[in-house]
């Protein structure tokens, strides 16, 4: 059975690194893997969606509505937007950070209220304050690795395998902060 994971967020939040850590961890488990990334214009502060799929044989790199086993959301509005992609019984991990999109900033639209509660009421949701944990780890940019930590805790893959990938994926000078961030997420 193919496992389908969706990572959603705002361009610039580091979703790409998160999907690469995830992808490289699961190939270590002997699976076929596909990771679909977003490059180009959307990276400039737009909604970004990456898909990670693994299993015996993976064909399509994308995930359709109602299919995702796990959604890892870096921002609440993006979690809300991605919710229809969650399969029945799937899990959504949400960083409770709010980043206003331009239509909200200009007053053309309203940022929906209580997104976390609305999602929790309708799906198996884990709400994390990843920004505070990243700050605690020493760099607010480590939100992505905090969230990978939360996901790792909820996966069947051992702790050590994740650490191994982080060590080979993250540049040396950010390694300490990222390992700390991973642990804070893992133990949250």
């Amino acid at each position: 059975m193919t496992k389908k994971i969706m990572i959603v967020g705002v361009g610039g939040q580091g979703t790409l690194l998160a999907s690469r850590i995830l992808g490289n961890t699961v190939i270590g488990q002997g699976y076929d893997v596909k990771v679909s990334e977003v490059h180009g214009m959307s990276q400039r502060g737009g909604s970004v969606v990456t898909y990670v799929k693994y299993g015996e044989k993976v064909y399509s790199p994308i995930i359709d509505k109602g299919e995702a086993d796990i959604i890892l959301a870096f921002e609440m509005l993006e979690a809300y937007r991605a919710l229809p992609y969650l399969k029945k019984g799937g899990k959504i991990i949400i960083n409770n950070q709010q980043i206003d999109p331009m239509p909200v900033i200009t007053g053309a639209a309203q940022y929906p209220e209580n997104i976390d509660k609305k999602i929790s009421g309708n799906a198996d949701a884990i709400i994390v304050d990843a920004l505070s944990l990243a700050r605690q780890a020493g760099n607010t940019k480590a939100v992505n690795v905090v969230l990978i930590g939360v996901m790792a805790k909820n996966s069947e893959i051992e702790y050590e395998k994740w650490i191994e990938t982080i060590k080979t994926t993250v540049p040396e000078k950010f390694l300490e902060v990222n390992l700390k961030a991973f642990d804070l997420g893992y133990n949250s």
Binding site: V10, G11, G12, M41, S42, Q43, R44, G45, G46, S47, D64, K65, G66, E67, L77, E78, Y80, R81, L83, P84, Y85, L86, K87, K88, P101, M102, P103, V104, A108, A109, Q110, Y111, P112, K118, N122, A123
Partner: peptide
Amino acid sequence: NAPESIALGEAIPMRPPVMC
């Protein structure tokens, strides 16, 4: 048909790309 999905019906503001 596609599998059932969760639809809460609320309007979700778009997030177009912006200058950094």
